[in-house]
């Protein structure tokens, strides 16, 4: 009795303010290191700008420095000039990824499920996977009627591999007992797919999509250097041609920020699709 009373008194006086403190503490700790990283990047950028500006050979490019770039960044955002290229680029990446998912997930399920298929496809797929998507560019341009379609093809062919192999990996990790139990409970193939296979592999599929988004976003810019007259890659090329280096750097900044955001969305999706208990 006595012991309990002291214990609860302790809880009342000591424990109660704790959560608040702990939260502030946690928030500080969670932000402190990322903030350090961002500061480091800016320092490097600033130093690079300073070095360029102080070298006679490179002085012409001084507007790559943070000051001019951020001004240009503000200009393209406030004038709205930034939105059109973003829209075009996201449209292409979206379709490319869409095709990659539509092809990669079923292909991965099959490869993960049938060992023979895995063995049959191993050499050709690894071979194709190691060819830079940009190597397909001339062929894509010939094969597709529009530039958009060619770029979407290049993105899809780059993004399909990580999705396929992550999905296959997920399927291979399915506990055979889950299928056995499902079978016993009277599951038809649709039930098995919907209630067992899909939830079991969701996390792996999204992990594959995260890798695919990274690849797609990287392939996009060089693909847009050619032919098209819209998109972030085109905007960079255009800025170079008109010698607006501050604007060029501002678009590089935009590409980085959007890439980061796409990745952050994927990380959230991976977390949400995980069935593992927290902690």
């Amino acid at each position: 009795m006595n012991r309990e009373a002291t214990l609860s008194a302790d809880t009342a006086t000591v424990e109660r303010p704790m959560p608040v403190l702990r939260f502030a503490d946690q928030a500080r700790r969670a932000l402190q290191y990322p903030a350090l990283g961002i500061a480091g990047l800016f320092a490097l950028w600033w130093w690079g700008g300073w070095a360029i500006a102080n070298n006679e050979d490179t002085m012409a490019f001084a507007s790559f420095a943070p000051g001019p770039t951020l001004t240009a960044f503000w200009d393209i955002v406030s004038s709205g000039a930034v939105w059109k290229p973003i829209e075009s680029s996201l449209y292409r990446v979206g379709w490319g990824l869409g095709y990659a998912i539509a092809i990669g997930v079923p292909m991965g399920v099959m490869i993960g499920y049938f060992l023979t298929l895995k063995q049959v496809t191993h050499v050709p797929f690894q071979f194709l996977r190691m060819i830079s998507p940009l190597a397909w560019m001339p062929i894509a341009v010939l094969a597709f009627a529009t530039w958009d379609a060619a770029i979407i093809f290049l993105i899809a062919i780059a993004a399909v591999w990580p999705i396929t192999y992550a999905t296959a990996h997920g399927v291979q990790r399915i506990d055979p007992m889950w299928l056995k139990v499902g079978n016993n409970l009277g599951a038809n193939p649709y039930h098995t797919l919907r209630y067992i296979v899909m939830p079991a592999i969701a996390q792996d599929v999204f992990a594959g999509i995260r890798l695919a988004v990274g690849v797609a976003w990287i392939v996009l810019v060089p693909a847009e250097y050619l032919g098209v007259t819209s998109g972030l890659g085109y905007a960079i090329n255009d800025a170079r041609d008109t010698l607006e280096y501050d604007k060029l750097a501002a678009f590089v900044l935009v590409i980085g920020i959007i890439g980061y955001m796409l990745d952050a969305i994927c990380v959230r999706l991976i977390k949400r699709s995980s069935y593992h208990a927290e902690g």
Partner: peptide, 27 residues
């Protein structure tokens, strides 16, 4: 005719209710 194993082999992404309901859902 239903088989139970040494391991419960529940579906870890589901609640207790969903796991128990599965046979009825499939039927």
């Amino acid at each position: 005719w239903n088989m139970m194993f040494q391991k419960p082999s529940l579906y870890p992404w589901m609640t207790v209710r969903k796991n128990a309901s599965l046979g009825l859902i499939f039927q």
